[in-house]
Amino acid sequence: MRYRRSVIFDATVTLVFDGALVLSAYLLFAGHNQPGGGFVGGLVAAGAIALHYVAGGGDQVRSLLGVQPWTLLSIGLALAVGTAVVPVLFGANPLDQEAYQVELLVLGKAKATTALVFDAGVYLVVVGLMLMILEGLGLASDEPLDDGEVER
């Protein structure tokens, strides 16, 4: 289905969408020291995607990220579980954290911990879940039925 849209509306949505994505990335990275973290970041990104869905209908979301929600979920889970598994392989406790000094070009020195990898996993899973909900409850339910059930 195609909605009639105004260019201004689309532009606004895109703007908000971009802004929300940047915000979500900030929340993800800042989380360890400021309010935020993977959850909140992921939720904000998911909110942005949901907004896109509400504004643009189903077709947009389907191809929005060019990536399957499955993939996001699996990568996210793998990242999070990976941070638990890797230390064990090296004889440490699961989920042991390591901290690294990282030189960031613009922002200067920052301390990055392996917790960030974990948080990134969380982030991806939250986004993936939202995509899945939108795909399932939003898109799929608009498709025709084929199993003989009566559409009500």
Binding site: P35, A115, D119, V122
Partner: peptide, 23 residues
């Protein structure tokens, strides 16, 4: 825990196992 936000440190480190279960 290398973090100032205690809640976040709890979530990703001290009680990271909970968070892993949650996702």
């Amino acid at each position: 825990g290398y973090g100032e936000n205690v809640v976040n440190v709890i979530l990703v480190d001290i009680r990271g196992l909970d968070t892993m279960g949650e996702i």
